[in-house]
Design a protein around this nucleic acid. Structure first.
Lengths: 184, 184
DNA sequence: GTCTATATACAGATAGAC
DNA sequence: GTCTATCTGTATATAGAC
């Protein structure tokens, strides 16, 4: 992968996390990386190509971060706290999770990007389910690891979405306290 | 308020719940209600005017529905279930909550619409806090009513966002089971 | 790989007739 | 209140030179 291609991809992800894919244009990307829009089309023929590459790239990077967390943190509350911190960092930059943002834009996405999006959520939920199952005995609530994993990701995506409107992190913090009340 | 104005508003809300405000155009709205785009501009001079009216209208209707639920359901699990059903109905139509959708589009909203958006979330969270406080003794978890209200709304907004991508309601259902496990 | 130039479509918004 | 007509800006995408 050429340097320019990677630079365009990185720029597109950053812009989409803040403004959404619909507001990101080939012209704007071209200006930001210092080329013409036709050169962006050389690397990503259509916007659908760009969108799919963004989601796949983001998913790989996110999965790597999840593995880091699993390796560094030994307790379930520690792992959840670390995940909350990932979302808190995105929120502090006034951004959303790329895939949460694109989920809102679902009706304008092509089938391949939609599939890549589903994969992101599946991978993240599978990681959560695995971590929860590993610490089953610590749960203070009668709920399957799968259900709990789904609710945790939904709550985090919703919390960052709503918190950004308030330019605060009250909901992420409330989630953090709830997690501590349930897990430990 | 004239009939046409109300019809435009209703049409705009329906389209925005599915596609987002950015994809909704004055031309498209005009076609759908059978007038020309300049006539839509007569009722809503700018897109910001339209957006703010949509959020206020939606908030009023939603608040009325919350009051209905409070009046009809006597138990906290019953109230939460009824709220989940509201979101499930929106999801079944392949839509999102209007304000969840517009929260994703925050960076393209004017200040007044942003304020109206904050009001929607505040009103809904306040209702939840009130209902939870009313049934404090039923809680199986050590968490403030305010925190729990915030997490519940975040989880519902996130669940509908992610579930729509999968054309399923797995996360809303998982939330429902979690609520039952916590609330009794 | 990047450029100039362009085709085509659609966006928000407004002037002025009726 | 609604219309016709139009201004201005921007979008995705492509052809063909270098």
């Amino acid at each position: 992968m050429s340097d320019k291609r990677a630079e365009i991809l990185e720029t597109a992800v950053r812009a989409t996390k803040r403004d959404g894919l619909r507001k990101v244009s080939f012209r704007q990307l071209a200006d930001q990386v210092g080329v013409k829009s036709s050169s962006v089309h050389y690397h990503f023929p259509t916007k659908a190509d760009l969108a799919e590459s963004m989601v796949r790239d983001y998913t790989d990077a996110f999965a790597a971060r999840l593995e880091d967390i699993a390796a560094c943190e030994s307790t379930l509350p520690g792992k959840i706290d670390a995940l909350v911190q990932v979302f808190a960092d995105v929120l502090a930059a006034d951004d959303l999770c790329l895939c949460g943002m694109m989920a809102a834009e679902l009706s304008t996405l092509d089938a391949r990007t939609g599939h890549a999006l589903r994969q992101f959520f599946r991978v993240t939920e599978d990681w959560l389910t695995e971590q929860i199952d590993m610490h089953r005995q610590d749960l203070r609530i009668d709920l399957s690891a799968k259900d709990l994993g789904k609710v945790i990701l939904a709550a985090l995506e919703g919390a960052i979405l709503l918190d950004r409107v308030d330019r605060d992190s009250e909901r992420l913090q409330a989630f953090s306290r709830m997690a501590r009340a349930i897990l430990d």
